[in-house]
Structure formats: C-alpha cells, structure tokens
Simulated scan of single mutants.
Amino acid sequence: MEINKELIKKLKKLSNIELSPSEEEKIKKDLNDLLEYLKILDEIDVDEVEEMISPVEFSTSVLRKDEVENFENRKEIINNFPESKDGFLTVPGIHINEEE
C-alpha cells in the first residue's frame, strides 16, 4: 500500500481538516515512511516469542476490582449539559458521505 494524493484527500475529508499543499506532502511522506517501518517490523520472526499483555510484569493483585459505584452528581451534570434525553447526554452523530 502506498499513501497517495487521493488517500490524503479522503483522510482530509474524513477528519474534517484543512491542509496546505506542503502539509499534504509532509503527511504523505510521513505516512509512507511509517508504512516502510511497519514492513521492517513485519519481517521479524516472532514464532518462538510468547505473547504478553504488558511489557511490565505484575501480579493480578495490583489491579483493582471492577465494581459499579454510584455517582452522586449525575443529575447535576445532565442538567448542565446542552442536550439530554431520557437521562442520557445527547451528542451530535458522525455522518460520513463517501460519495464525494
């Protein structure tokens, strides 16, 4: 895969940002460099390496228990939010038009 002007154009639209031509070129170069680095990483043989969830060893006693806690200021936060419905905060949706 190569990052080209068409892909940069699509990424600009999806992220809703404006870029100058020089910024587009820099991002295109940076992303292509990143893909080249990933190709190098892809060549590393990891067949004999055991999977791990963290580079730091720790015991499970360090992790806190996942417990539900009541939050006392819930109604105050909902009342201060611009829009709410049925006790939940309402935010604008994300709409992507891929035709353009």
Rank of each mutant, 00 (worst) to 15 (best):
V62G: 00
V56D: 00
P92M: 04
D33S: 13
R64D: 10
S20Y: 02
F58P: 02
E18K: 06
L63M: 13
S22K: 11
S22Q: 15
D47A: 06
N97K: 07
K39V: 11
R64T: 13
K75R: 14
T90H: 10
D66M: 15
K29G: 06
G87T: 04
S84H: 08
K9Y: 15
K13S: 05
E69C: 02
K26W: 10
I78N: 02
E25Q: 14
D86W: 04
R64I: 13
K5D: 15
P21H: 05
K10I: 12
E50T: 08
I96Q: 02
E69R: 14
S59C: 15
I94E: 03
V91I: 11
L38H: 03
K39C: 02
P92H: 02
L14N: 12
E72V: 02
K65A: 13
I94N: 10
N16L: 08
I27V: 11
F58V: 07
E36I: 01
L14E: 11
E6Q: 09
L7W: 04
R64C: 12
N32H: 02
L41D: 01
N80S: 14
K10N: 10
E2W: 04
V46T: 07
L41C: 08
E98L: 14
V56W: 08
I40V: 01
F81K: 00
T60E: 14
I17Y: 03
V91F: 05
S22W: 13
D66S: 15
E48C: 05
E24H: 11
K5C: 09
P92Q: 03
K5Y: 14
E50H: 03
E36Y: 03
R74N: 09
E6D: 14
L35P: 03
N79W: 00
I44C: 01
M1W: 10
S84D: 00
K13M: 11
E25H: 10
N4Y: 11
K29I: 10
E98P: 12
K10E: 05
L19R: 04
L35H: 01
D42E: 09
H95G: 09
P55T: 08
D45I: 02
M52G: 10
R74K: 12
K75Q: 13
I8N: 08
E43N: 08
I8K: 05
N97W: 01
D66Q: 09
E99R: 12
S54P: 01
R74Y: 08
H95K: 12
L89D: 00
I17L: 10
L89T: 05
K12L: 02
E24K: 02
N97A: 09
L31V: 04
E67Y: 05
E23A: 11
D30F: 12
T60H: 14
E2F: 08
E51H: 09
M1D: 07
L31I: 07
K5E: 15
K29L: 06
M52H: 13
K29S: 08
E67L: 07
P55F: 11
T90G: 07
D47E: 06
K9L: 12
E24L: 09
E6C: 03
P82I: 05
I40Q: 09
I96R: 06
N80P: 04
L34T: 04
K26L: 13
K9A: 15
I53K: 15
L34C: 08
I40M: 10
K9S: 15
E43Q: 11
T60L: 15
